[in-house]
Every structure is written in C-alpha cells, then in structure tokens.
C-alpha cells in the first residue's frame, strides 16, 4: 500500500520535477530521458529547435500525454497517477491557440470560469478583469473567428489564467506576435512571476528566454544538452559575435585572411558570404580601419549578441535544423 500523497508540499520542493522522462511516437523518440527542475515562483525557459521535444514536455507536464518512462511531478503531484490534482493547479497555453472560434472572447473566458466551478458572478468578474488586462475590451463581444492571430493568442493566454494557476505552462507564447504585443506578453509573464506564479515557457528565441527566464534548459532531439542561467549559456557561446559581409563575394577570402591575422582565429563562413567569429568593440574598430586601408567595401559589419542559432552551433557543433515544423496539432 502506498502512502496517501501529501497535500502540503515542503516549500523547498521544486514546483516541477522531471526525472528521466521518455516519450516515443512510433519510431520517433520525442523525449529521450529528460531531467529538469523548476523552482517555486521562478520562470524556466525551455529552448530548442523544431522537433526537439518542447511541446511534448509541456503536454506531459500538463497531463495531456502519458509518458512512456520516467516520472514528473507538479507541486508534488504525479502527472499520471494524480492528474486531477495537477489539473487543479495548472494553466496551459498550448502552441496552437485552444479557444472556441464560434464563441466570443467573453463567452470563452466565462466558459472556462464555469468549468472551474466559479459562480456565475465570479466567472463574470474574472472575465472582465482578464479582458481588461489583456486589452481585448474592444473585441470582447466579437466571435473569436474574427480575431487576429495576436488577439487570439492573448485570449488563449487569458483563458489559461482564469483559475489563477500556481503553475503556468506557456508553449511559444509569443510566436506570431508583433513586437509591441510580444513586449506586452512579456510584461504579463513578469507580473505573474512577481505574484508568485511558477512559469515554464518554451521558446525558440534566446532573447525571449533572456528577458523572462531565470533558468534555461536547452533541448535537442529529446535530450537536455545544456542548462543554466541565460548569462552562463551566453558565456558558453563566448559573448559578442563579430560579423562582416564583404560587398563582393570575391573579397571573402581576403577578409578571412585579415581576420586570421588580427585574431589568430578562423571565422565561420556562411553561404551568403558572411564571416562570423567572437569579437570585441576593439576588434571591430581595428577591422574597420584595416578594411578601409585595404579598400575592401563591406555590405555589413558589426557586433551582435549570440542568437539561439549560435548557441546551437556551439553546443551541438551543427546549426539548428531549419526545416519546416512537422508536428501534428493532435
């Protein structure tokens, strides 16, 4: 006989604990033994290229998928054995907006409220609050079918907050949003975190993770290939990157030689003729001067922060796959 699950969990117990999680779909291994922990009240960013297992992880943690191996708990409740208890405490915004097209925004939120056993009055109040908070007042009474992608996304986010979840799962919450609305969603996530909500969010953008997450976990082919704070991950990539693209392809070789002279490093050259290597403002300056002296015209020259692509390049020794997403919405 197993002891009854504890209803009160020690505060030092992580909000989410994942141990050796495995999930296969036929011949595809979506998760090949994932371990991760999310501290209470923290924001964890789950990064990875298409098909790396981010959505699968979120679906297992939100009780939508049964894992084939390993174990996962949310606030101490096992996601398989104790799924109803998990559902009482979580909110989920999936990768694809899960709202009812044929209902209005208000009706969608009230529906969720009623399903969460709020009284009619509370459901209405909570709906008004969220409509206001997510700037949907104008469209509140309109059918969701007429919403733009960004409005639908925000409504979906609002729907996951109706029950004031302690743990929130956000699967690529800003994909398809314009910069203004992306910033707004970021503000919402920060505010939720400040209120004590634990957030696990997946993203393809290092910048987003950087803005929001205290901890990062990088997945590739269903495995954790790196984890740590954004700062430590970026340090792995090596700070800033210098990139230069000569105006004429014929000059690529000469610029590579020049960079070799200046740094004793070999730059990476991509198919567009762009040369990249880790760099500093001082190097940028020296390179600029030399290019000017040698009379090599350049189309682009500058420093940038590492992108997720750079992280992958460094972590896996190959670029992140750029193929179209092949996942099923099912």
């Amino acid at each position: 006989m197993a002891a009854p699950p504890p209803t009160v969990v020690a505060m030092n117990e992580p909000a989410i604990r994942v141990e050796g999680l495995v999930k296969t779909f036929g011949a595809t291994t979506a998760l090949a033994g994932v371990d991760l922990e999310v501290r209470r009240g923290s924001v964890l960013g789950l990064l990875g290229p298409n098909g790396s297992g981010k959505t699968t992880t979120v679906r297992v943690l939100s009780t939508l998928l049964r894992p084939d191996g390993g174990r996962a708990t949310v606030l101490g409740h096992d996601v398989v054995a104790d799924a109803p208890a998990v559902r009482l405490r979580i909110g989920l915004t999936g990768q694809y907006a899960a709202v009812d097209d044929a209902l209005s925004g208000v009706e969608n939120l009230r529906l969720i409220g009623r399903l969460l056993d709020l009284s009619r009055r509370d459901a209405r109040r909570r709906t008004d609050e969220l409509i206001e908070r997510f700037g949907l007042a104008e469209a509140a009474g309109r059918r969701v079918k007429t919403y733009s992608g960004g409005m639908r996304r925000r409504l979906d986010l609002a729907a996951s907050l109706v029950g004031r979840p302690d743990v929130l799962f956000l699967d690529e919450p800003t994909t398809g949003l314009d910069p203004r609305h992306r910033n707004e969603v970021w503000e919402h996530v920060r505010a939720l975190a400040a209120e004590g909500t634990t957030v696990l969010l997946t993203t393809q953008y290092l910048e987003e993770a950087d803005q929001l997450a205290e901890d990062l976990v990088v997945l590739d082919h269903g495995e954790v290939i790196a984890s740590g704070t954004p700062a430590s991950l970026k340090a792995d990539v090596g700070g800033q990157l210098l990139h230069v693209r000569p105006l004429h392809r014929a000059d690529v070789g000469a610029v590579a030689t020049l960079l070799g002279e200046l740094t004793a490093e070999t730059p990476a050259i991509d198919p567009t003729g762009e040369l990249t290597l880790s760099g500093t403002p001082a190097l940028l300056h020296r390179l600029g001067v030399r290019l000017e002296e040698d009379g090599v015209p350049v189309a682009e020259l500058g420093l940038r922060l590492p992108s997720l692509d750079d992280v992958f390049l460094t972590l896996t020794g190959r670029p992140a796959e750029a193929g179209p997403a092949t996942e099923e919405a099912a």
Binding site: P84, Y96, G163
Partner: peptide, 19 residues
C-alpha cells in the same frame, strides 16, 4: 473540437473526461 485543440484545453481543466 479535437482538431482545433479546444479539447486539450478542456482536458487540462479539473473536469471529468466524460463532461
């Protein structure tokens, strides 16, 4: 409903599967 993902939303809520 299964296709659009709205069932996923329902299934993540603490309601019975039969509902």
């Amino acid at each position: 409903d299964l296709h659009t993902g709205i069932f996923d939303r329902f299934r993540s809520l603490p309601i019975s599967r039969a509902a």
